[in-house]
């Protein structure tokens, strides 16, 4: 076991981990964050996406021990006390069905809108291409991101 100190959703946490434990498992089982989901466990589906220092990553492909000193944001951290404009748009456009991929999709879309507040459709598709959704056919997700981007002032 090794100690890892990191910042999770703006709170400093220190935990004991085995080197082989993934960030996904540690977030879910030791840090109480259930929004990152396990879908494929090999980086193909994006359901486990979280932000590390503002960049989206696959938490199933990262050992928790690698994250010493880093800032990790999960969907819980984005939701906070009030849902974001993007999240409200997801609700408005039915941009989810079963909801299992939603946390990862919102992480990716949040990263996109931060670096590119007014993306075009192709840029949205590109940014989401690593998040598999089996239910929606993606169009409602594009609609929500376009709406949220319009609500973000130019």
């Amino acid at each position: 076991m090794a100690k890892v100190k990191l910042t999770l959703n703006n709170e400093t946490r220190t935990i004991d981990v085995e080197p082989c434990e993934t960030l996904l498992d540690v977030l879910r089982d030791k840090l109480g964050m259930k929004s990152p989901k396990c879908g494929c466990d090999r980086g193909d589906c994006g359901a486990c996406a979280v932000l590390i220092d503002g960049k989206s990553v696959r938490s199933c492909l990262i050992f928790a021990i690698e994250c010493e000193g880093q800032h990790i944001t999960t969907l819980e951290g984005i939701s906070g006390d009030q849902l974001s404009i993007l999240q409200e748009a997801f609700i408005e456009f039915n941009s989810f069905q079963c909801g299992y991929c939603a946390p990862g999709v919102i992480i990716s879309a949040t990263e996109l809108l931060k670096s590119n507040p007014h993306p075009n459709l192709e840029e949205i598709k590109e940014a989401l291409s690593g998040n598999l959704c089996r239910c929606t056919g993606y169009q409602p997700i594009f609609d929500a991101i376009l709406k949220a981007s319009k609500e973000t002032k130019k």
Partner: peptide, 19 residues
């Protein structure tokens, strides 16, 4: 009508079996 499970699923609150 807006889906009644939206807030739950979009906030990350929705509980799935593995959770």
């Amino acid at each position: 009508i807006t889906r009644i499970d939206g807030r739950e699923k979009i906030s990350g609150a929705a509980v799935y079996t593995d959770d």
